[in-house]
Amino acid sequence: MRFELDIQKRMRSGKEEFLLRSAFSSSDRALVLFGPSGSGKTLTLQAMAGMLTPDEGVIRINGREVFDSGKGVNVPARQRRVGYLFQDYALFPHLTVEQNIGFGLKPLFGRLNGRGRRRVRELMAVFGLEKLADQKPSTLSGGQQQRAALARALAPEPEALLLDEPFSALDQPLRLRMREELSGILKHFDIPTVMVTHDSDEAESFAETVVVYRDGSVAGMHSTRDAARRGESLSEAIRAEVALAYE
């Protein structure tokens, strides 16, 4: 898997202007976009998923061009084949857990086919959601909501998974447990992942490569491999970045 991205986007809210200049390229399977809030990491993730259209630039996911302003390419979100885990999970409140997970497999008119039903059952088993199949998301705990949202994102078998601050909606003790659980799940599904976080511990425990964001631009990139070559660890590099960001 290879993520390649070089984009620009000018945004305006009131009189404030924000310039996003985001560029990185990595062939690692676990990428973390790390930085304080408002530094442009979530906007970058949204651009990868096709929810935000950059003013100019190129985005390639696994060699597949999903955006290229020069060639007029802009693959719509529905055809990018990336799963997206929203910060607040965005489970459909009017549907049950089972219907949420099967959402991307069901045709507009008609019902889930046999293969789709099997896939939903399989995912509910992996995520331990069988008993909650008929419940509405509002009755679920934070951890259960996250599992349901992950299962929903993985159901259509995406080529990559994008996670936007996956643990920020959880309490601290649960956060640690879900972090381990997520690592296990990602290993199980063996899917390339890009995760946005402002938490250095999360970045450290998850990343093969960390892309550091500051004020809308990429301020640095660290990979486990490069750090090891220099005889450092990734966590040292991240800690140095944190010190820089909050000095």
Partner: peptide, 8 residues
């Protein structure tokens, strides 16, 4: 947006 990323 969630529905769109789910291919809709």
């Amino acid at each position: 947006n969630a529905a769109r990323t789910l291919g809709q």
